[in-house]
Design a protein around this nucleic acid. Structure first.
Lengths: 207, 207
DNA sequence: GGGCTTTTTCAATAGATTCTGAAAACATGC
DNA sequence: GCATGTTTTCAGAATCTATTGAAAAAGCCC
């Protein structure tokens, strides 16, 4: 087998993971680069400084700085200082379940909470909707009254949905990461099925 | 008809919801317009044709057509034909839990499955990583062997995580929407708490 | 403080996404 | 088939986002 440029074995595999993670990130709201930096730190498992990241991913200093800071804000990467070295180093959280909680926390904060607040505000203010000049004023069809009721019903349904999602997330975040893992695996395994730890080393899923 | 002023009550509330939903959509991978079209169809509860959508949201025909088609693809909007009318009308799924399942299904397909397949492929191929010229060949530090092991460990952890998420999603999708609702509410209510149906009509959450 | 190193910021630019509008394709009824 | 009304497509324009690179700020040590 073509082992001739095999020193790239590890690095190449890392690059592929970085690319995959980056692509996934960009499908979400996260910038591709930020996800790539995270993947790099996670998969190497080492503490890297800004220059390491710049060099490995071929990105500018500004970009590296921004991405690293954002990752620290998200809580999936920690700063690390070294005695006798002025540089700052960065390490990714190695426990994927802790990582998942950080991501969940941040996404809830950015995506769910604002929407829920918005929806509630809209409903509160829409409570004041009154049909034009009451019923029976002649011109307007009574249709409007129905429409307003339906509007409220649908608004309420939407709020109930988002709220349940919010509460579920909050519950999960309150859990210890290990317990969350157990819970997730129980759900994945069929609501009460055995929670197995081993990730089944076999072949991957087809597609 | 005296529609000129009071139309601001209901329509304004609708507009606000549309804006909120659109913003949320753009935080995810969904285009803002597509989310707005969906919000419009959902909140009005009516079957609208392309021209209605164009007029109400002030968007071009092409944009409306694309967005509507995408929503139909996602399964959150259905086409509707009317006898004696050549136009096509569109209605949003009114059950929010059915809607949630459609969204979940589509997001799994687009975001989770490809990543999982990718990760598995990477692992399968990275199984072949051998350190340069075996151990003990002098030059290379044995460090490399450790690095490769760590690499595999981390890759496996990541795969296990994504796989659990995938399986959880699959399980939820297999459920009847109403049962999924029950499940979600049970989780939200504290893992075994009572599942109450009423969405508590009171004031909203603060922030 | 002054010299040195590293990090952060930000205006300009490169790049990607979304939207438009008009033309092509598609139906439907006559 | 033709006439009419509707939907889809897509190249180019408009818009939004990410990235760079260099200047400013922040540390650190003597």
């Amino acid at each position: 087998m073509s082992t001739h440029r095999r020193s790239s074995g590890l690095a190449e595999s890392q690059d592929r993971l970085i690319a995959a993670w980056g692509q996934m990130g960009s499908t979400w709201g996260i910038s591709r680069t930020m996800a790539e930096v995270h993947a790099l730190l996670y998969i190497t498992g080492q503490a890297l400084c800004t220059d390491d990241v710049m060099a490995r991913l071929s990105i500018s200093r500004g970009n590296a700085s921004m991405s690293l800071r954002a990752l620290v804000d998200w809580g999936v990467v920690q700063r690390e200082h070294r005695r006798g070295d002025r540089k700052e180093y960065f390490v990714a959280t190695s426990d994927v379940w802790v990582m998942l909680q950080s991501i969940l926390r941040e996404r809830m904060k950015r995506e769910i909470h604002p929407v829920l607040a918005n929806l509630c505000e809209i409903r509160d203010e829409s409570g004041a909707i009154i049909e034009p000049r009451g019923r029976g004023a002649g011109a307007g069809p009574i249709d409007d009254e129905e429409a307003v009721e339906e509007h409220h019903r649908r608004l309420d349904d939407l709020i109930a949905l988002v709220r349940v999602i919010d509460e579920m997330g909050t519950k999960l975040l309150a859990l210890d990461p290990q317990l969350m893992k157990q819970t997730a695996m129980a759900l994945a395994g069929g609501f009460g099925g055995g929670a197995d730890d081993s990730p089944s080393r076999g072949a991957g899923r087809g597609s």
